[in-house]
Design a protein around this nucleic acid. Structure first.
Lengths: 199, 199
DNA sequence: CACAACCAGTAGCGATTCGAAACCATTTTG
DNA sequence: CAAAATGGTTTCGAATCGCTACTGGTTGTG
């Protein structure tokens, strides 16, 4: 194959294209791209991150817009809101049964299926490169990069229980794999399994 | 290294996220995501593909919406329209000097720079996997996959001149590397979806 | 040539969305 | 307690997108 100088352009363009195609179902879908993203975000985030502010920074939009998107999900009965006891201003959203069911029709499932058909090695390499791109772009844009607690610099274990240094609280077992708003990549970049390649 | 069953989910989500972040500048940008995509599309496509219909199918939207997006670019003096001589209904759009200059502020440049910093081998592997995903998703969604003439099944060379079988015309030298709407992949499973690409 | 079917593109309408600014409630700070 | 800061919501205006209907050029059939 030819290795043209404009290859990076093509790769970037292709990446945006694939993301756009997969993110929103063919307009016959029930939800908007933004609504799907929000639903997924709440499904994958720990309890202290399922808030309008966190989603706003994740989605690179305003808190007002985030509030509207969430409101639309709420009016469809896909999420429920509860006030936080610790901070009465804060809201925490949880997926309802309908919300969970709706995830089954996520237009992203097409892409997920295709990714699943890749070989394990290829998939791992792809993830490595992709996450590198993600954090690099996030740094350039000066937006926080979201990640799971287990890869976070604040993460630690003492005996049997996991805890988060920035929340100063123990982590629920089901939360350690979820997204966290206060994620900061551990220094040295090769987070867990000693990813290949220098950073 | 953890290999969680939900890894494909994360990869897909991350891909959409990177694409969304990179596709549109941080809302302080001059253009919207769709407009940037259109401008890039016209900059990368051959003359017979810089039409509203082609962009509509590329962007997976209606011709009406595509026409509006193009109109907004036109009103900003970024593209100019000319009627095709061969088919008086068809419009061909070209980037103006301002349009070319605007490409210099493409928000995608951040991502392009990051991709450029990857090693050659990693970049090649990434492109391979990404284009595989792209064509697989395009097939599932039943949308035509765009590609450059040099990789197209209609492409041929006779001596010095390049030739496109579906347009039944010689290709301009600068067009053989550009996107073409009637692209059909030469390898793999060509006749799977087999849309009405024959023309 | 007449006619119908088809295709490329556009215009108008309505719904939705997004961003900016103003506004309330709660927490923190001095 | 007063003042500043933070989390969320609301309102308004601009822009976008999809749908439907429409104009005008092209092609096929007798």
């Amino acid at each position: 194959m030819l290795n043209q100088p404009q290859t990076p352009d093509r790769i970037a363009e292709l990446l945006v294209h694939v993301g756009r195609m997969s993110g929103s179902g063919d307009a016959g879908s029930e939800l908007t791209a933004a609504q799907w993203t929000c639903l997924r975000f709440f499904a994958r985030s720990n309890s202290s991150t399922r808030t309008p502010s966190a989603f706003a920074s994740f989605h690179a939009t305003t808190r007002g817009t985030a509030s509207q998107i969430i409101k639309s999900l709420e009016s469809r009965g896909l999420v429920t809101r509860t006030r936080s006891r610790r901070d009465r201003r804060s809201m925490c959203f949880d997926l309802t049964a309908r919300g969970q069911a709706m995830l089954g029709q996520d237009p992203l499932r097409d892409l997920i299926g295709v990714i699943n058909d890749l070989g394990t090695a290829e998939r791992e390499r792809f993830l490595t490169t992709l996450s590198r791109l993600a954090s690099a772009v996030a740094m350039q844009r000066n937006v926080p990069s979201f990640g799971s607690c287990q890869d976070c610099g604040h993460f630690g274990t003492s005996g049997d229980t996991a805890y988060c240094a920035c929340m100063a609280a123990e982590l629920m077992p089901e939360d350690i794999a979820k997204l966290c708003a206060s994620f900061t990549p551990a220094l040295g970049a090769p987070s867990k399994g000693e990813r290949n390649g220098a950073s």
